[in-house]
Amino acid sequence: MSAARAPRTPAPRSTKRSLASIVLGFELIIVFLAGLTLFGLDAIQPVPREWALYGGIALCVLTVLAMAMLRSPVGYWLGWFVQAALMSTGLFVPIMFIAGGLFVALWTYCMIIGEKLDRQTRAYIEAEDRLQAQAENGVA
Rank of each mutant, 00 (worst) to 15 (best):
R5C: 06
A6N: 10
T9R: 08
A11C: 07
S14T: 04
K16I: 02
R17E: 09
S18M: 04
I22Y: 08
L24K: 05
L24W: 05
I29L: 11
I30H: 06
F32M: 06
G35P: 00
G35E: 02
L38H: 09
P46K: 10
V47N: 08
V47H: 07
R49V: 15
W51V: 15
G56R: 03
I57V: 15
L59T: 00
V61F: 07
L62S: 03
L65W: 14
A68G: 05
G75K: 07
W77E: 13
L78D: 01
W80D: 10
F81W: 12
A85K: 02
A85C: 06
M87W: 04
G90Y: 03
G90V: 07
L91N: 07
L91Y: 06
I95S: 09
I98A: 10
G100W: 03
G100F: 01
G101P: 04
L102I: 13
V104Q: 06
A105K: 05
A105N: 07
T108N: 04
Y109T: 05
G114C: 06
E115P: 09
T121W: 05
A123N: 11
A123H: 08
Y124K: 13
A127N: 11
A127S: 14
A127P: 00
E128Q: 13
E128W: 01
D129Q: 04
A133W: 03
Q134N: 14
E136R: 10
G138K: 04
